[in-house]
Amino acid sequence: MSIPLSILDLVAIPEGNSAREAIASSMASARLADRLGYNRLWFAEHHNTPNLAASATALLISGAASVTERIRVGAGGVMLPNHAPLMVAEQYGTLANMHGDRIDLGLGRAPGTDPMTAQALGRSSAEPQAFAQSIYDLQGWFGPEGQARSMPIVSAVSEGTEVPIWVLGSTVSGASIAGQLGLPFSLASHFGPDQIDQAIQVYRESFKTDAPTARIDKPYIMAGINVVVAESEEEARRQFTVVEQMIIDLHQGRRRRIQPPVDPDSLEGQRALSQNMLQISAVGTPDMVKAQMEAFVERTGADELITVTYAFDPAARDRSLELLAKLWF
């Protein structure tokens, strides 16, 4: 395939492991992804989630950028209403000053957590107009003049870094915002598959190259897909039960860390809880996964894919990354 392939990492914490161990495994995987030729590595913001260690994305990005040389590293994403835009500009401008032109900033409007935790984060408005204004200000702080349009006397260390901004979303609302702002769109199809076809259409139809925030001259879509590759279909299906259990736990309100793989047949009575959310997945041997991913690209017309691979054993995740890279690049 000719389109770029990237990785989304939520820094999963396996049962029996600590956040420290999960982060160390994530950094080791970052080095591997850099060597294998993946285009970018993004970390997604989540809070009050016991099975994920991806809450402070800027710190994870700095760690990953420090142990890699080529791969782009960024946020997929920062849930912008959880943060003051000036602080985001300062953090990501600092990252760009430290690591050069390898930093991406994906922005979302979702809380990335439950309502009580969102309140504890001091969450501000997620309304589309407020979200768009924050992006407008961020671009000002990243620009050569280093000033937000709505606050022209406020400058930041991010001046001149021109950190690329993406809009994240899984619905037509997020797609419309991305299109109207003339920005690249990261489609969260790996967990929000219900509106992907409509969202892609809305994004392309609403795309404005003359928007004040526009930074690309045509629509660009990076779509998410769950991927597990193994030497046999049976082993891939067994490894996929790790994320299936995670989604089943989410629906049942069960708070526990990432569980080891199980016999796929043992989940048959509960699989309905995870099937819809995980329908955009490629699972199997290298040839099977390649065919499934190619079909998804044909369906969506995606310009890039971003893969999500959960594993109880970091070695299984790294093996999947290796097999995928061998068949894709």
Rank of each mutant, 00 (worst) to 15 (best):
L32G: 03
R238E: 10
I135V: 06
R255L: 13
A44F: 05
A56H: 13
L138P: 09
W328V: 01
L95M: 04
I71Y: 08
L250I: 15
R70T: 11
V242C: 05
I135W: 01
E145H: 14
D265A: 15
I247M: 12
H46N: 08
S125D: 01
T94V: 14
A230N: 05
P81R: 02
G37P: 05
Y92E: 04
G100D: 01
T213G: 12
F185C: 07
G301W: 12
G169M: 01
T309R: 05
A302P: 14
R204P: 08
A282V: 00
A12R: 14
S155P: 10
L305C: 10
S206Q: 14
G160C: 04
M116Q: 14
S62D: 06
L181E: 01
E90F: 07
V167K: 00
R237A: 15
K218Y: 07
V227S: 01
F185M: 05
V289P: 08
D287I: 11
F131A: 08
A230Q: 07
Q91D: 09
I225S: 09
Y203N: 04
Y38H: 05
I103F: 02
W328I: 13
E294N: 14
R271S: 02
G143Y: 06
F43W: 10
P111G: 13
A175H: 05
A282Y: 06
V11H: 06
P264E: 00
A188H: 03
Q275S: 08
D263Y: 12
Y203Q: 01
L10F: 15
I165M: 09
N39P: 13
A272C: 07
H46E: 02
A156G: 03
Q147R: 11
E15C: 02
S155H: 11
W328P: 07
D114G: 07
M288K: 14
I7A: 06
L36E: 05
V297M: 10
E205A: 11
R72C: 02
R254T: 15
M79I: 04
A19P: 00
L321E: 07
S274W: 01
E205M: 13
R238C: 11
V283A: 00
P286C: 00
I258A: 00
P144S: 09
L187S: 01
P14D: 08
N276Q: 13
A178K: 02
R299M: 11
M98H: 05
R317F: 05
A19S: 07
G74V: 06
L168I: 00
Q245S: 09
D249Y: 12
R109A: 07
Q139L: 05
N276D: 11
V167L: 03
A54T: 12
S155Y: 13
E322Y: 13
G77V: 08
M246A: 15
S274R: 02
A302L: 03
F185G: 02
Q201V: 15
P212W: 14
A188R: 08
